[in-house]
Design a protein around this nucleic acid. Sequence first.
DNA 1: TTGTATGCGTTATCAT
DNA 2: ATGATAACGCATACAA
Lengths: 353, 353
Amino acid sequence: MGENALQRKPRRNQGMSIARLAEHLGLSEGTVSRALNGYPDVAGKTRERVIDAARTLGYSPSSAARRLARGVVETVGFVLPQRAGHFSDPFLAEMLDGVAMELADSDWDLIVAAVPDGHDEPEVIDRLARTGKVGGFILTRTRRKDARVDHLRELGLPFVVHGRTEDCADYAWLDIDNEKAFVDAVRYLVELGHRRIAHIGGDMSFNFAHFRHLGYRRAMEDAELPVPAGFVAEGIADGVAADEAMTAMLSLPAPPTAVVCVTDAVALGAMRAISGAGLRPGVDVSVIGYDGLPFGLAAHPPLTTMSQSSHRAGREVARMLLALIHGAEPANSQVLWEATLTKRASASPPPPH
Amino acid sequence: MGENALQRKPRRNQGMSIARLAEHLGLSEGTVSRALNGYPDVAGKTRERVIDAARTLGYSPSSAARRLARGVVETVGFVLPQRAGHFSDPFLAEMLDGVAMELADSDWDLIVAAVPDGHDEPEVIDRLARTGKVGGFILTRTRRKDARVDHLRELGLPFVVHGRTEDCADYAWLDIDNEKAFVDAVRYLVELGHRRIAHIGGDMSFNFAHFRHLGYRRAMEDAELPVPAGFVAEGIADGVAADEAMTAMLSLPAPPTAVVCVTDAVALGAMRAISGAGLRPGVDVSVIGYDGLPFGLAAHPPLTTMSQSSHRAGREVARMLLALIHGAEPANSQVLWEATLTKRASASPPPPH
DNA sequence: TTGTATGCGTTATCAT
DNA sequence: ATGATAACGCATACAA
């Protein structure tokens, strides 16, 4: 039967609809729909027959039609960070994978949108929301003041933020406790015997950079250690800038014996500056980074670093967003995860003075 | 919540539809639709009035309804590489940004799907295609034999491949000329005076690794240089493995004076091995990588490397896919781009023997 | 337990 | 130049 039917009408799935499926079965569209959607009031035998035929004929309901009929969306939006520049976020792909994977478990989809030149993020969010393409949003690379958050708040669509803004009481977010992470890092260095500890920080308008800086300050204060002039660099975003910043620190009258860096990329730059100054990273000057990049593992010496799985974070924010859409309270969906300190050879006790 | 919030409720476009817009204007739905879609047979004044009202009331057509009525999809699918592991592809995010940006110019959208555990890529492709969620696909990280390509070929949906398979005559693709890139790299080393040139290669089931290896072999043959036993490593995927491979090469009786590496990550691993053996990378042993990673720029010495913009590639494959969907011939959509060699200090003339 | 009828928001094909 | 009206594919309230 199969061959004949196929040869006569090589109809693609293109033309497969619930109408044709119903006709094929000698049933009404309504019954087929109910059978497929697990309604209780269809005969067991009928349901079996329907499901079977649907599989055989390769029928899947049209998402557009279903959306229209039910009024629900089953798609979430993810707006890629604007002006991300090249390679600025090694975790985006990983996080997207986590998000998409979690969504797939519920048969939801992920629309990824970029911000075209000449437009801004709120515009992109608006377009996706107004055309009914998505039923919620996931945000990442959050700034302390973030126009996207403000816009979504006003829009009234469910959203989950990876990170936080200054004012984060009324929406759902998942953040790493960056402050605690850097407190831990500094404490670890203090335990190793360091007293002159510096910090190479990032763009403080980013929430993560802000809190990492804060953690450094707090831990130094707690340990009653001074933060001499020149011991804190801000706005360092890559290895080259880090190299310069570290070089400047090493030329101080009393240079640091350890440095905590806002990212691994920055830490590796700092390590090069240390080598370049004729010192041994991890021996003369200890270095700690953040990210857990594979480059760090393969560095000389291997980089001590802090990290959290982006994939897991992606899964979690997706899970949270689905819960939100299903009615959960945003204020009950605020999660703070701790980063893990991976101890390697780039941080060790300071040289005897 | 106060009455204010309730009063502002009409601000939500939730309930905005062409029907309400038409009613508001005292026109029929049909006329409004035609005015908005640029049909010629509406009075100029009417069109103005309609467009104006649409903007004021924040109306955008429901994508689901439009899809249903017109039968076109305006969304393309991108299936994330399975088992990508952590950070395995620093370009994915960049490429996605390019794809999404190009699509946005035509008001198209991008659905990014992951492959859930226990499933495979063809299944994911199938689901997206059958539910009518996408009108075409973009593939990346192509293997020489790739089940996704076979499946899409059979499915009959338009698709563009970033990379190529063994048999690539009948579909659209954009690839980098990896063979030429590595021919150029080896030639450059030969011009510098090298004669003992090695290759650290990747997983040869990947198309790019295959052709990079091929390019190395061809250039060596062209230059009539021997490839001694131990001068080619295969299946090296990260810096740690590269470190080991390079260390082995350096312990050969006549070790190489230069090495071309399948990626920058591998090249950096090789550089560490060279330093570890007490030699100077870029002086005693020259190193060339591929990718143009920022880490390479900041390495010691800065890494000579080859690259092509992933963002531009993303834009181009999206452009090609749209053309395809609009009727272009796949066989006319096959593009080979050249990589650019960036000369830095990690490759220089060999030491005098 | 099943069939019928209606609506979701748009576009397209008719009329007028 | 504009207004009815019929699809598009599905879900569901209501009848039978």
